[in-house]
């Protein structure tokens, strides 16, 4: 089933059941956050919800693991450094 998700203001088509990380990586993104201390880029690392490197903001809630959260129709995903907003 095709659904629609907004990522950083851009409307994207997605497949129901895809994780946020799956969606971002299928579109070629390898990093979507910068670290709070030195501003280094980060994206997926462990892929199973353990390392918390891949955090995104979903529907206004920060610190959501992109590799664990499945997209739902109408979700608003924001990437970037949570603690620099």
């Amino acid at each position: 089933m095709k659904i629609s998700v907004t990522v950083d203001g851009e409307r994207l088509g997605a497949v129901a059941g895809q994780t946020v990380a799956g969606l971002l990586m299928s579109r070629g993104r390898v990093s979507w956050r910068t670290t709070s201390r030195t501003g280094r880029p980060r994206g997926l690392f462990c892929g199973i919800g353990v390392c918390f490197d891949c955090l995104v903001t979903v529907n206004g809630l920060s610190d959501v693991r992109a590799c664990q959260r499945r997209v739902a129709d109408g979700d608003v995903v924001e990437t970037g450094a949570v603690d620099e907003r």
């Binding site: 390898v30 980060r42 994206g43 997926l44 462990c46």
Partner: peptide, 23 residues
């Protein structure tokens, strides 16, 4: 090892099996 593009092998496996995506 903190550069984007370095993954655990499990991440590559999870993306392949769960998302059909090559890292």
């Amino acid at each position: 090892w903190d550069l984007p593009g370095v993954y655990t092998a499990g991440a590559a496996q999870a993306m392949a099996k769960g998302e059909g995506v090559a890292v």
